[in-house]
Design a protein around this nucleic acid. Structure first.
Lengths: 219, 219
DNA sequence: TAGATTGTTAATCGATTAACAATC
DNA sequence: TAGATTGTTAATCGATTAACAATC
């Protein structure tokens, strides 16, 4: 078993391949080549093969990859063969939207604990899930052995919450708070900063604008 | 002017630096070195200097970067000196959450057109913004010259919507639909696939688990 | 002047792509 | 067997980091 180091982007692509395989399976297509798979995403076939080769030999030379089998392998690799309990911290606009997002449960992620600091919300049940005061994070998560958390709170106090999550044994955090958080090396922090994303769009729009006027001028 | 090619990640980091500079300015700190800036994000000082050097010489040797001035430069580079009109397509849970997200307006992004296909929603006004039928995308966006769109709709029909946006002159799209969309080379598509993100978290949790049990066994 | 820190070039590192023997 | 496609090694590419002259 030579695990070497697996690039982050390989993992991201793996879950994209998986979605494609689900579609292929639904369409009754029994096998697919790295070339075909690559074409769908504008990737290089060698990259597809390399990504998969990190985890084993799943293909058949001359034929390609058996759809269903590869799908099973990827599900196992990505840890989707089991259901995951997920803690949601913050039940504002974004938190509520995420709670109602059907994609989670479909893929085995169940929000089973919610935390908020608003006394109006604490104690209620939303979608059958109890809302706890944030001060209960450590004991509740510890007891339930929850490993994955979603952070949908404002910047202020976010680090304290993260510290609590880590103390409680959480090893993976999806963070929507627009701030830099620090976690120990063995905890995975995935940032989704919508305002940063919008800024890159703004940058590209500025550029597109300039290009357009330049081209106009040249023509 | 040697523009060369600017890495995507440089742009992302630029907007992170900017946030830091805003805080520094609020704290009345007038200058900062690449070393200090890098430390805050666990980056390399050379990288900070290189990122900035793509766009000009903003620093003073021996002293560092003047906070306020650099902030201004970054705002100009990222296109934040102007307000942006943004179109929101899809007013479900996620769309509503994004509409109510205060971070947008604070940073000059105003959602000024909403599209949905639900007849119940069409024609209403939400937060003072009119909801149009999706079939009106092209004329409405064209007339208002909107350049940035947020896509918060399900997979089905997403490509058709994107085609409309592009036809109407949109050059940057923030996509929350969990599907691969195709756009022309001069349009920037930024995907935020929450289910893919959760899968990478799942993968890391699986790994952390294995590591933990291995260490236990070894001890 | 001495110390500090930039801007930039060169070295390193890591990821992508090309090429090809292995093999279905 | 001939054609196709994998798995893997080698070549390329691009981004990060180190090093250092320029200069405040």
């Amino acid at each position: 078993m030579k695990s070497s180091k697996i690039p982050e982007r390989t993992i991201t692509r793996l879950s994209i391949y998986l979605r494609c395989l689900e579609e292929l399976e639904a369409d009754g297509i029994v096998s697919i080549s790295s070339k075909q798979l690559a074409e769908r995403f504008g990737l290089n076939p060698a990259q597809v093969r390399k990504d998969l080769a990190y985890f084993g030999q799943f293909g058949i030379r001359g034929l390609g990859y058996p759809t269903q089998e590869l799908k099973n392998h990827l599900e196992r690799i990505l840890g989707l063969k089991q259901d995951w309990e997920v803690a949601l911290v913050g039940l504002g606009n974004l938190g509520s939207a995420l709670l109602h997002y059907k994609g989670f449960r479909e893929r085995g992620f169940k929000i089973t604990a919610i935390f908020d600091k608003d006394p109006v919300k604490v104690g209620r049940r939303v979608k059958g899930v109890r809302v706890w005061n944030v001060s209960w994070i450590v004991p509740v998560i510890k007891r339930r052995k929850i490993k994955i958390a979603i952070l949908a709170i404002p910047t202020v106090g976010a680090q304290a919450v993260v510290d609590g999550l880590v103390e409680a044994g959480v090893t993976a955090i999806l963070n929507f708070a627009p701030t830099q958080l620090s976690v120990p090396w063995n905890v995975k922090l995935q940032n989704v900063d919508i305002s940063v994303l919008l800024k890159t769009l703004s940058f590209h729009t500025i550029r597109a604008d300039r290009e357009a006027t330049r081209t106009e001028g040249a023509s």
